[in-house]
Computed example of a mutant assay.
Amino acid sequence: MAKSLAELKAIREKKLNEINLRHGKNGYRVVVGMATCGIAAGARPVMVKLMEEVAAKNLVDVTVAQTGCIGSCRLEPIVEVYGANNDKVTYVHMTPEKIVKVVDQHLIGGKIVDEFTMTIVDGKIVDPEIKA
């Protein structure tokens, strides 16, 4: 049986609320792109380091997950951080070293690490290395 758009929106909202309950009102959901493009670019060590940092720093309000292709293969490895209000920050060209800084500054300190984010100008993605 096909679902209506309203039913699909209700299911999505319910699942987002469940995720928010799991990682706390002020927590984060961190998603790593683990499609073939991400893995080829080095997403696996980024994911491992992220899980290690979250565990070592006992960040109980942080949920770590993986997803398939995020859609910007040339920017892989990509890590997306969702806040409690479901706002999203997309980090690109991530490395295990960069993930440490994101954990310390963003997940613990609440400050976005702008130097690792992508920017959209006139509908086009501007690579972080280019915007500097």
Rank of each mutant, 00 (worst) to 15 (best):
E80R: 09
A2R: 09
A65Q: 14
A55F: 11
R22N: 01
E97S: 06
L50P: 10
I70V: 15
T117P: 00
E53T: 07
G24Q: 11
E97N: 07
V48G: 10
I78A: 06
E97F: 06
V31H: 04
I99H: 07
I19S: 08
V30H: 02
K9D: 10
G27C: 09
I99Q: 10
I11F: 10
M118N: 09
A41Y: 08
V89N: 03
G71A: 07
T95C: 08
L75C: 12
S4P: 02
Y82G: 04
I108F: 11
T90E: 01
V89D: 06
V64Q: 09
A55I: 03
G110K: 06
A43S: 15
V30K: 05
V54W: 08
N26E: 15
T117D: 00
N58V: 07
H23W: 02
V48D: 14
V102G: 10
E18W: 00
G42M: 00
M94W: 08
K57I: 05
V126H: 01
V103L: 10
A55T: 14
K9L: 13
N17V: 03
Q105V: 15
M118Q: 12
T67R: 10
I130S: 01
E129D: 02
A55Q: 13
M118D: 10
D122S: 05
V54S: 04
I112A: 04
G27I: 11
Y91M: 13
D127Y: 04
G42K: 03
K124F: 07
N86R: 06
L21I: 05
E97Q: 12
V126P: 02
G83R: 01
A40F: 00
Y82F: 15
V48H: 11
K131M: 07
A56C: 06
R74W: 08
V89T: 15
R12D: 09
L5T: 00
